[in-house]
Each structure stands twice: as structure tokens, then as C-alpha cells.
Nucleic acid binder design. Structure first.
Lengths: 145, 145
DNA sequence: CCGTGAAGTGAGAACCGCTCTCAGTTGGAG
DNA sequence: CTCCAACTGAGAGCGGTTCTCACTTCACGG
């Protein structure tokens, strides 16, 4: 997750080629600090803690822009809310989400196109993987998020 | 989809071992008539057409019960609404949904556990596959649903 | 440096899929 | 037939997300 912070100053900005406002910078920095999956609302909570006044709608817009730019990935959902995570991994892949601590690990896409019905032209597919990470299994009571 | 209708009178009722009311019977029969994926609301629309007075909440409850009993499967979503389909297929599998006509085809699960991070205990995974079926590719303008 | 226009922002209302509540109804076991 | 738990319909409620609108701010050209 540390390398994610580095990307903040790299040419590949979290928002692609769009404009960078101070609010967006704060949101991207906070997202980089979240270790693991987070919802737009939990990100908003944390952003507001360090920079009061940021609106929830702004966070939603920033998250959409970052997901669009590939800086964030939608990794699943919890209680009906979308889960996101910072993802510097390149290429097509999915994510395994620990339901206890929220840790996110990239998982290679094992999708076999031959399994599809004949003639079906797949345009996209979504995979969400939930479970308990090794660390949380080790410790009797896992972390919380 | 015809074999799905047969299941209505089979011992494996759409609602498992629960009570069968006339409303639920109408909903299960209508679900069997929907060829392809449908939302709870579109199912409600169609149920109401043939049997006015059925409430939306009742359809939601029936859909939940049928999904619980394995008669329906959640096959994806469209515009934020859950897509369901009647599914007689046994065993663990997923579904390919045609985004044009809504046709649903079972797809074997090609998930490789070895792709998971070491020690990660997967509890569940969700896969949604979208594309265009062979039939819709053949006809310039596909069906609608 | 400024002026300018487009992009971004904040607040709150609106939206929408879905669930809950409650009083009334009904299926089916006994 | 009796009885009661399960089911129903209507509408309110909920929660995540998006929209609207007036205002601010970024960044580019001059």
C-alpha cells in the first residue's frame, strides 16, 4: 500500500488527466492511507477528520473519477455499499477481500473463455471474492474495519 | 425454460417446504414464463398484468424465498437492480447474461482456488458475466428486455 | 500576473431499489 | 371445523448514491 502513495506524485495521477483540486488531493491521500477495502462513506469520514468541510458528494465524485482512472478498484460490496481499494496492480485481475480486516489482495483472473456458451461474446465480467485472510485466521479475533 | 415450469408441480417446489399461497403460485408461474433474466420489478409488472392486486413487497418476498430454495438464481444486475433467472441447473455454477435479450446460460465455475493468496480461506465468491448471445449477434437488432 | 471559463465543490433534496411495519387474510395441520 | 403461524397489501421508511444549483477555484492564454 506504500507504493500507492508514491503514485500520488507520479505522472499517473489518481484522477487521470483531470484537474486536481485541494479537496481531491486530500481525498486521494486519504484513500492511500486506508489499508484495505473501504466504502465511500468510510472514506468520507476519514477525510473529514483531517480536513473538515469536504462533502459526501465530493467524495463520491472523486471516488468515481479515481476508479475511472484506474487508481481505485471496486472490490466488492458490504451491506449494500460498494467497497473500493487502492490498486496499483496492472493488467486484468480481481481482488480477494478479507471480511474481517478488509485486507485486499490481487488475484489473477482464472476465467476460462471456453467455459462460455458457444457464440457468446462476453463484454465484461465481475468477480468478487470474500473470505478470511491468513493473518485474521491466525489471530483468534481479527482486526476490524 | 420449459422444464422449469415442470418443477412447479414437482416435489421440489419453488419455495422449498414453505407454504404455497395463491399469490406465490402466480408469482412462481410468472417467473417460469419469463424467458431470461428479470428484475423483481419487471416480474411484478408481469404478475400484476395477469393477477392484479399483488403487491411489490410480496414479489420481493417471493423472489427471496425462491432464491433461497434454489429455484431462482441471482445472475447479475442492471441499473442497480438485481437480476434473477429461473435456474434448474444443479451444482455450483454461474450465469452468462445477454445484455440485449436477457437470455441466461449456465456457465461452469472455472475458479481456481490455487490462484488465491496463501492462507486465504474463501467463504464465497460472486461472478457475473455479461455479453451478447449468439442469437443476438446473428440478428442485426436483438430482442429486448 | 491578471481575466476567464470550465471544472470542481458543498449542502441538501431527490432518487430508487429494497425492506419493514401493521392490520387483515389465508393455508393447511390437527 | 378451528386455529394460528405464515402470508399479504399498502405505504412508510431506509440507506446508498446521484442530482441540482449557486458558488469557488484551478489553470491556461494573453
Amino acid at each position: 500500500m506504500t507504493e500507492a502513495r508514491d503514485r500520488l506524485s507520479s505522472p499517473a495521477a489518481p484522477y487521470g488527466s483531470r484537474r486536481m483540486s485541494s479537496a481531491r488531493r486530500a481525498i486521494a491521500e486519504t484513500a492511500a492511507l486506508m489499508d484495505g477495502a473501504f466504502t465511500a462513506e468510510s472514506l468520507h469520514d476519514r477525510v473529514v477528520a483531517s480536513r473538515p468541510g469536504i462533502g459526501l458528494a465530493t467524495v463520491y465524485r472523486a471516488v468515481a473519477a479515481m476508479a475511472d482512472a484506474g487508481y481505485l478498484a471496486r472490490v466488492g460490496e458490504r451491506d449494500g455499499a460498494a467497497l473500493y481499494a487502492v490498486c496499483g496492480h496492472d493488467g486484468h485481475h480481481h481482488h480477494a477481500v478479507c471480511e474481517r480486516c478488509g485486507a485486499v489482495t490481487p488475484v489473477e483472473c482464472a476465467f476460462v473463455p471456453s467455459a462460455l456458451p458457444a457464440g457468446f461474446a462476453m463484454t465484461r465480467h465481475e468477480v468478487a471474492i470474500y473470505g478470511v485472510c491468513a493473518e485474521c485466521q491466525g489471530s483468534e479475533r481479527g482486526g476490524s474495519r
